[in-house]
Write a protein that binds this DNA or RNA. Structure first.
Ligand code: FES
Ligand code: FES
Lengths: 133, 133
DNA sequence: GTTATTCCTATCGGAATGCTAGGAATATAG
DNA sequence: CTATATTCCTAGCATTCCGATAGGAATAAC
């Protein structure tokens, strides 16, 4: 249960790779090979990270990707939200949407607490924490 | 992200229903109607909860389901594991399985910490906590 | 033996996931 | 200016998973 999509796992591995080779920029193909990730698939993932402002890119020969900020300034919550959207255990956590449970929705608070717990974990970790064993 | 399958949501709603009507036993159809859950689908879910020893059942006329223990003795971790299996964010958390990341696997600890965080949340809540607002 | 119920197994449509393909845009090198 | 290296964009596809449904067998009460 709660399995993390490969998209997110790969995205994080890619960021780890970039963090380890800071300064110089790495190409998508290089990262894919080093991390055993399907090259074309990774291209799309890096695109997402770029659109979210987590990495910078340069096109053309000698192009590639590098981190937009230092690892300690990249919160993992940002990363997972960039890759898979907000953590939302159950759909009914949106405002004003309520299930039709007649006696009022008891599980709601339970799920809401779960979301907070997960969000806090992700928010408390930075990319630097991830690469430092 | 991290959306909880309806299977688990329904299972918990069913347990809540049973907890609210303790002592007397409720039929699957009755719970399904009260909770707006597909009746046949719920049958299977209750079967799982029964096989995990969380609810007791009686067959035949006047049969039905009831909690196997009091709500305060039912940890939510047991419930979610009964319904969806162990919380396992990434497959590589199993012992001795290691990804082929060449410089050693840095994200591993990150995922492991996530699993612990989620498990602790579920383990800290009982069914009684869920029904008490 | 009739009725109410749990229990078992099989199946199915639709959505999501993980991945692949092809090529356009863009930058560098020579 | 051309060849090359790279990001970027869009479409499509195979497989798996999810949520749900169907039919009926077993069992217990009355
Ligand atoms: S509002 Fe989510 S189960 Fe009720
Ligand atoms: S052991 Fe899981 S990503 Fe490496």
């Amino acid at each position: 249960m709660f399995s993390v999509p490969t998209r997110t796992q790969y995205g994080i591995r890619a960021l780890v790779h970039l963090a380890m080779s800071e300064a110089r920029s790495s190409t998508s193909a290089e990262i894919a090979k080093a991390q055993s990730i399907s090259p074309k698939y990774l291209e799309g993932i890096l695109g997402q990270l770029k659109n979210s402002g987590l990495v910078l890119s340069e096109r053309g020969a000698h192009g590639g990707y590098r981190l937009a900020r230092e690892p300690e300034a990249i919160r993992m919550l940002e990363v997972v939200e960039a890759l898979e959207g907000e953590v939302k255990p159950v759909g009914c956590l949106e405002d004003s949407v309520h299930c039709d449970f007649d006696v009022g929705c008891l599980p709601r608070r339970f799920w809401s607490g779960l979301k907070e717990t997960i969000d806090e974990y992700f928010a408390s970790k930075t990319l630097k924490d991830v690469i430092e064993t």
